[in-house]
Every structure is written in C-alpha cells, then in structure tokens.
Amino acid sequence: MLMIISLDQLPVGESGIVTVIDAHGLTRRRLLDLGLVPGTVVKTIRKSPAGDPIAYLIRGSIVALRVNDSKQISIKPFSEVAINE
C-alpha cells in the first residue's frame, strides 16, 4: 500500500521522499530554491516550542518551514518506500 502524507505530518527523526509540491507562485519558487523538488529526501529535525514552524534537514542544511507551507508538500515516508521496493 502506498502511503502519502503531507510534510508537516512527518514525525521528528523520520525521513521521506518529496512526491508533489502543491504550492504555486512565489512560495513554490522559494521552496524550489531550497532544493525541495520531487525526489528530494527530507528529514524532520525538530519542532519549535509551539509546534510551528518545524525544522527539516534538506540537502545538508537545516531549514524551518511554517506548517501552512509544509502542508502543501506531499511526501512518501521512508519506511513505506522500503516496504514497497
């Protein structure tokens, strides 16, 4: 079974692969600049004290995204990838 979740749902310490980026315009471009494209591996590093924003490891750098934005990114968690392959 394929499980796709949005990036904000990825628990701390877990990794996944970006499948779809559903943001448009400037937000999309900013995400792309960070190297967030379909196929990118992302790991959730930590949540801020209020739970939003959340910091992710993206291509070797730690970048914090607000939940509004990370909601628009679909990912396939790694555990699922392993089972399917």
């Binding site: 914090a64 995204l65 934005d69």
Partner: peptide, 9 residues
Amino acid sequence: SSSFTLELP
C-alpha cells in the same frame, strides 16, 4: 502572512 523559510545555520 506569507510563506517563510528560515535557515538554522
């Protein structure tokens, strides 16, 4: 509020 990305160097 618009989108925002912040690097934690």
